[in-house]
Design a binder for these strands. Sequence first.
DNA 1: TTTTGGAATTAACCTGGGTTTACGCCAATG
DNA 2: CATTGGCGTAAACCCAGGTTAATTCCAAAA
Lengths: 164, 164
Amino acid sequence: MNAGDYLFHQGDVAPNLYLIGQGLAKMFYVTHDGKEFVKSFLPEGSFAGSLVAQLEGRPSPFSAVCLEAVGAEVVPFSALETLFKKSPEARSFGLRFFQELALKKEKREYELLCLPPAQRYRAFIEENPGLAARVKQKDIAHYLGITPIALSRIRRRMKTPGPA
Amino acid sequence: MNAGDYLFHQGDVAPNLYLIGQGLAKMFYVTHDGKEFVKSFLPEGSFAGSLVAQLEGRPSPFSAVCLEAVGAEVVPFSALETLFKKSPEARSFGLRFFQELALKKEKREYELLCLPPAQRYRAFIEENPGLAARVKQKDIAHYLGITPIALSRIRRRMKTPGPA
DNA sequence: TTTTGGAATTAACCTGGGTTTACGCCAATG
DNA sequence: CATTGGCGTAAACCCAGGTTAATTCCAAAA
């Protein structure tokens, strides 16, 4: 899939899970008044998919789109569910997977709740050294929950005013 | 346990999971400069515990304290882990539990990322009809990531200015 | 090569939350 | 009964992000 292609759209039931083998994608919300917010970036080795769509059979509240050419494995979530039913070993993997997912979400929750935008940006750069270069600042801003203009101002402040 | 008692403290390794049978508790972060942020409220039927402390054996980044008198079951996380190892059926429950947890976290992430404070407040009231009466506005404000003063202003705006 | 369009920056203005201080309220304490 | 202390509210001021609009840069398209 090429940059710009969608894995699934906001509103779809999106019953598939995607394992990103190569490339880069993002999952993002678009609010009723047209504002975009990036839920997460999906580099190599990430899973794309909507828990709401898959666990509850409801439309996904966000979309997934490729930012670079992407090679991905498509896994119907129903296949995973039957696998979990049949194989106790698979359940162990599933358990571990969702534990890790919850752990990541808890970290993101912490940053959104406790850190101001400038510190969220610093944290993002430190935790994702490679990503910053591959992603547009516009998308980083939307990942932080601010406008590209605000991010531009934060970057300017971080340059010279060094004194803390 | 009585109101004011701690289930565990920020910095503890906190290897236990608590099932709240009765009462109400909260989990909350305190930043280096003394600001408080409420991670979540724990009414009857909730689980209290730190994923970071339990899955990675590291100190919990937040505390858990009772807001009302609490009756709770204490479950050492290690006991759960061995149970998961031995019993494939228990794994099913664990899998489902962490799926639900990830789902909740995803919703919280959405609200913190996409909604402005006033809308976060409206959403909190609607989703937790009973809680608002049991919890101090101070704690609600910290749950929303704002100051009690800001919440007071939001509430005032929501009264008369009705016209949308 | 020229043109087009998106990305990033900047400035100006507005708005809403943070901060400080003060006040009224009420329950717990003496 | 008086006092204390936390909570909610309020006013005043400051500041950072949102908004709009203009500018520059650059790469893709014609």
